[in-house]
Each structure stands twice: as structure tokens, then as C-alpha cells.
């Protein structure tokens, strides 16, 4: 059984937390903090298994994690799970995210935490591994997205327009406008 799935960044900020056993919000935060402390002090070239973590688990539980760029993906599992299997599951999860978000980065997880949850729910259900075949997972996700799009239909169009305007971030775009470098242009002028 998987007891919890945590994703946090290099600074310990949670990006996704999924507990398959109930803890209240305070304890959840403590667990995230503790796990971050345990995981973050490990070098990248040491093994990906970690025993301990006093708040969650006990002797039967292990933390299995992978570190991708700025994010840690941590699975807290008991002895019924295969260690290498879970490592692979993390890989499948991240690759699925990569497919869904097209070259995924931390910002995707920040702004689409709900979508990440929906993707995860196609891999793991109630702490048990549901599906590990990426093609199947993608098919399920795409079908569900299709339903959402259909439902949104025309009625969502104005809202979408507004959000598009909101996301335009005009000051930045003004900054991004590239004007020709005048002094350079002048220099380049040759008589």
C-alpha cells in the first residue's frame, strides 16, 4: 500500500500532497516538512530509499523518492510494495505529466495542481496501484478532458476570453517588445 504521495520543490514548498490515510492539516504539513528535511539533505548520487520518518509510517514504511530538477517526488509505501517497482511508478507518473503538459516544469504543477491530481488518480487509487501502462493512462485522461471540453462548450467562451486577457500580462509583453538597438544601428550605418 502507498500511504502518501508528496511532491515538493527544492525549498520544501508543497506542490502536491495526497494522503491515503487521514491526517489533519497540521500533521500533513508537519509530515511534508519532515519528509523534506529527510530527503533534501541527501546527495543526488545516493540511493533513493529512506527508512524512517517518525510521523508517518513506522518500521514497515519506507520513503521512496526521485529528484527531478527542482522537484522531489516522494512516495511513502509499506513493505508490500516493490521498491524498484515504485521507482518505476514515479517515472511513469512523471512521464505522464510530461506528456500531458508538454515538457513539464514546476510551473505546470503550481498552476494546475488539480490536473495533476486527476492524472495521479489514474495511476493510484486509494493507495493501490491502478494502472501502470502509460498509453492506457493517457487514453483515460484524454477521454475525460474531452468530456470537460464538451461541457464547457460555448457557455465558457466569455470566461475563457477574460482569463486570456488576464493572463496576457501586458507589462511583461511591453518589456518583451524588441526595439532595434539604436546606438548599434547608428554605428552600423555606413556612409
Amino acid at each position: 500500500m502507498i500511504k502518501a504521495i508528496l511532491v515538493f520543490n527544492n525549498h520544501g514548498k508543497p506542490r502536491l500532497s495526497k494522503f491515503y490515510q487521514y491526517f489533519d492539516e497540521n500533521l500533513q504539513q508537519q509530515i511534508i516538512k519532515e519528509t523534506f528535511q529527510l530527503v533534501s539533505k541527501r546527495d543526488d548520487n545516493v540511493c533513493n530509499f529512506l527508512e524512517g520518518g517518525s510521523l508517518i509510517g513506522g518500521s514497515d514504511y519506507k520513503l521512496i523518492y526521485r529528484h527531478y530538477a527542482t522537484l522531489y517526488f516522494v512516495f511513502c509505501v509499506d513493505s508490500s510494495e516493490s521498491e524498484l517497482g515504485i521507482l518505476d511508478l514515479i517515472q511513469v507518473f512523471v512521464e505522464t505529466l510530461d506528456k500531458c503538459f508538454e515538457n513539464v516544469c514546476e510551473l505546470d504543477l503550481i498552476f494546475h495542481a488539480d490536473a495533476v491530481h486527476h492524472i495521479l488518480s489514474e495511476l493510484v487509487m486509494g493507495g493501490m496501484v491502478l494502472q501502470t501502462n502509460m498509453n492506457d493512462i493517457m487514453a483515460r485522461i484524454e477521454e475525460q478532458n474531452k468530456i470537460v471540453k464538451q461541457e464547457a462548450g460555448i457557455s465558457a467562451a466569455p470566461a475563457r476570453a477574460v482569463s486570456a486577457v488576464k493572463s496576457m500580462n501586458i507589462p511583461q509583453q511591453i518589456k518583451d517588445i524588441k526595439l532595434p538597438d539604436l546606438p548599434q544601428a547608428i554605428k552600423d550605418l555606413k556612409f
Binding site: N9, A69, Q91, V94, E95, D98, N103, V104, E106, L107
Partner: peptide, 9 residues
């Protein structure tokens, strides 16, 4: 810049 770093799988 950090956040936009791809996860690099």
C-alpha cells in the same frame, strides 16, 4: 527561471 526548468526526465 528555476521554476521553469524542465523536470528533465
Amino acid at each position: 527561471a528555476d521554476y521553469e526548468q524542465p523536470l528533465g526526465i
